[in-house]
């Protein structure tokens, strides 16, 4: 069975990117506005630093602009964009690993209080009255729960929940097969359930 090639030109982002390729600077500004928040969000989880994530976000869009002439609409724009994002994020991670001394004074990102995510989460839930957590606390819990995940699981969860990518897009961005993505997401969910269920149901520390 021969798959018909999908026409991505109807995608609004693809149209904007084609306009950028044709020299439309305003279209590029629109693309930046539409995607920078999500890109930043993804990169925060790669770097654990808002400031560094902002710098990387700018780098990502610079790379998008520089690559505009080579751009071909062979996939959804976000697939193409998040491949760049992922490369930047992984590069930054590797760089950070090789040069830890440069990141000693990095200001912590929200919820990053230094200790292990799980311990933080348990500590926080410990002093909160059951079922009386507010929205801010919930966000913190989510953030800490994500921090407790394996980086690849966290990445897949982010693509799914932030970028609303389906399995096949996630597979393209992460260069995996769709069943592998399915399995990865299941494991991530199970882990999150382990951490969050006691908190969500009873507001108590899990066993």
């Amino acid at each position: 069975m021969v798959n018909e090639p999908t026409d991505y030109t109807q995608d609004e982002d693809v149209q904007l990117m084609l306009a950028v390729k044709a020299g439309d600077a305003f279209a590029f500004e629109q693309l930046v506005s539409r995607h920078q928040e999500h890109v930043l969000s993804t990169l925060v989880h790669f770097t654990d630093s808002l400031q560094q994530a902002e710098e990387l976000t700018q780098e990502v869009f610079l790379k998008v602009y520089e690559a505009r002439l080579r751009y071909e609409p062979t996939a959804k724009f976000t697939t193409w964009l998040y491949r760049i994002v992922r490369n930047e994020g992984l590069n930054a991670k590797r760089y950070k690993k090789r040069h830890p001394e440069r990141f000693l004074n990095t200001s912590p990102s929200p919820g990053d209080e230094g200790a292990g995510a799980e311990e933080n989460l348990l500590a926080k839930s410990g002093y909160m009255p059951a079922r009386q957590y507010d929205a801010k606390e919930e966000r913190e819990m989510v953030h800490l729960a994500l921090k407790s995940l394996d980086p690849r699981q966290r990445e897949a969860i982010l693509y799914q929940h932030v970028e609303e990518m389906d399995y096949s897009q996630i597979a393209q961005v992460m260069e995996m097969t769709v069943p592998a993505v399915k399995s990865l997401l299941y494991r991530a969910r199970r882990r999150l359930a382990e951490i969050l269920t006691p908190y969500m149901s009873e507001g108590r520390r899990p066993q």
């Binding site: 930046v32 700018q58 966000r139 969050l196």
Partner: peptide, 25 residues
Amino acid sequence: VDDFLGRLELPSVSPEMTTRTMELV
């Protein structure tokens, strides 16, 4: 769990960030 993940907060983008990106471009 899935619903709870929906409470994930996106970091807010500083207003100058778009300008800075466009300046770089």
